[in-house]
Design a binder for these strands. Structure first.
Lengths: 339, 339
DNA sequence: TGAAACACCGAAAACGTTTTCGTAGAAACA
DNA sequence: TGTTTCTACGAAAACGTTTTCGGTGTTTCA
């Protein structure tokens, strides 16, 4: 249980001053070569490593970035973290993760905790409750303190910070187009309530594509699932009420749930019904049939967000009051659920 | 861009000393009621929050726990983190996550970084490379410094620390029993190389169950998949070489891959071949057919690990050199892949 | 021989807290 | 009036760094 070595202890053991030790370890020319060697040898032998906390306090920066997301068990968020972590580590940063669990209060508490010196900047995606309440005071507070934020996926439009998103409208538009080109005539949309911005935007893209092709918008063909944990029954009932030959789902869970319900009902995918889903995750790859998806490239989003944040952190803090919104390209991955 | 408020600034603004401010905010009786009220009012008005870094340095504890895992995109690890985070937050701790990406070097680097003051203790699961090399010097170093570690799932037996695992031998044993009771006569096992301890233990349980029932162990019926990213071809070939009526897989990926290969080959699940998989994740729930699995209760494991670690952290650091290994119960979840 | 330059090192401040200790003045007591 | 006891506050150390500044003692140069 050798106690952690500090500069002070080295100084005592070697009968020199703390400053000498510090300088020697940083190879300062102010210290003679022999003293330097002696100190460095000692430090190496007893495995001295500077204390990060002390450095953070001194330098007024922690080399840590905080990330707040709703849930980590969603594959998309996991991939984003993976990307953040990769880029952050490359640049010598560490990642602190907090989960809001889709709760506004927990989001606020977590932000407050992290904002008080624990990290240098935030990467975050808003909780569902926050989007519903449209209460962003905690974000504003942090921004006002001069701490940079990069938001991704679920962003708040009127917070001035960098953002990394996909063009949801465009992606939904293209996916709908894709289904129409595959000769679907009666499309359904499985989406979220409008307060979830990605849901709203994808719904918009869906409608636009239909109108462009001269279809009428049938609101009854759009299901807004409130409770994702109990979506199965809702989706099944929805599909029983009408017959569709194409489905666009805003996530893979809705898609695979629909796929299963349809197959149970004797339909065959993709000959009777074609399906396209957002989010290219595990389910899409291993469902039967495998799902055609719109990949959101979460890894890339995370990487870009981290790069953007670190760029801001390391910029001269003078005048950089320009914020950017990066649009990440989506990728249509064709699999068995479309003809 | 209001600069962060500190005790010093409050002291200046209110023309008192720093100690007075500190004491007032902590409601010390040494400070008169009026002064206290004045200071607290001011602090509240301008939203003073103490700086965590300074507190960490002072208290020699960070109230953060570090977690190092191989990959975050594996559902099991995500659930564990979720559990860690829940318990940690309840007790006022934050969670720093680092990914080893199954690489020994990255594991060492990440541990080194975190160990120098950034956190109070570790929760970790070893990378595949570490298990293969059996090089645990980085763990020993940390333990010697007096920093507690709790390992889970992929643990190193000869490191003295708390551990949270499932009884892999027993679980595999029971799962194999289960298949045999369902009248399977010729079982196959899809597992990992032996250096992955969970793979080895599950293999052992599989064999024990067979022997107990008087079956001979056919090594050719055991496939040890080296490269999980390209397991599909290997599994398909393996299944073509022999005919089995029951399969035990050490993870859901192997299981669903096998299921698909068999179905492509005209077999029907579960009537021709029954399948049981370890890890009750997304794939098992949404594959077709859905998979019978052995749930590892990752959320619970994470929660227990966090509770254990925090208990150690907050114990009197005198004599507590006893380490415990907690066995988490597994849950057999019956679904469509078994009769 | 004197001043100037240089090599080498230590003291101290700073980062933001908490806490121990000291002390001024006022009140209480004899 | 002199001593003691409170009350209310400030100074300073400590946590572990880095860095500026100052100060030795020696060497170099005129």
């Amino acid at each position: 249980m050798a106690q952690k070595l500090t500069l002070k202890k080295i100084a005592q053991d070697l009968q020199v001053s703390i400053s000498t030790v510090s300088k020697a370890l940083r190879d300062s020319h102010e210290i003679s070569v022999e003293t330097r060697e002696k100190i460095k040898g000692y430090a190496k032998k007893y495995n001295y490593k500077p204390n990060n906390i002390a450095l953070s306090l001194k330098n007024q920066k922690t080399k840590k970035i905080g990330i707040i997301i709703p849930e980590i068990v969603h594959h998309f968020f996991a991939t984003v973290i993976s990307g953040v972590e990769r880029v952050a580590n490359e640049k010598g940063y560490q990642v602190i993760i907090c989960l809001s669990g889709e709760s506004f209060d927990k989001e606020v508490v977590n932000m407050d905790m992290l904002a008080n010196g624990s990290i240098d900047g935030f990467i975050m995606s808003l909780s569902k409750e926050t989007m519903e309440k449209q209460d962003f005071h905690h974000l504003r507070e942090v921004v006002n303190q001069g701490m940079p934020i990069v938001m991704f996926d679920r962003v708040a439009d009127d917070i001035s910070c960098d953002k990394v998103i996909i063009d949801d409208v465009d992606a939904a538009n293209k996916a709908t187009e894709f289904l129409l080109r595959k000769n679907c005539k009666k499309l359904a949309l499985l989406t979220t309530p409008d307060y979830v911005n990605v849901g709203r935007l994808r719904t918009q893209g869906f409608k636009e594509a239909l109108m462009k092709r001269g279809f009428e918008i049938d609101e009854k063909a759009i299901l807004k699932v409130e409770d994702i944990d109990h979506c199965a029954q809702q989706i099944e009932e929805f599909l029983q009420q009408n017959t569709y030959d194409g489905i666009l789902a805003v996530n893979e869970l809705f898609a695979v749930t629909a796929s299963k319900a349809l197959q149970r009902g004797g339909k065959s995918i993709p000959s009777d019904v074609a399906i396209v889903a957002f989010t290219d995750g595990m389910l899409s790859k291993y469902a039967s049939p495998t799902l055609t998806t719109i990949g959101q490239n979460g890894e890339e989003m995370g990487g870009l967000a981290a790069a953007k944040l670190i760029e801001k952190l390391e910029a001269d803090h003078q005048e950089n009051e320009s914020y950017e919104t990066v649009i990440v390209k989506t990728t249509l991955v064709e699999r068995e659920s479309t003809p």
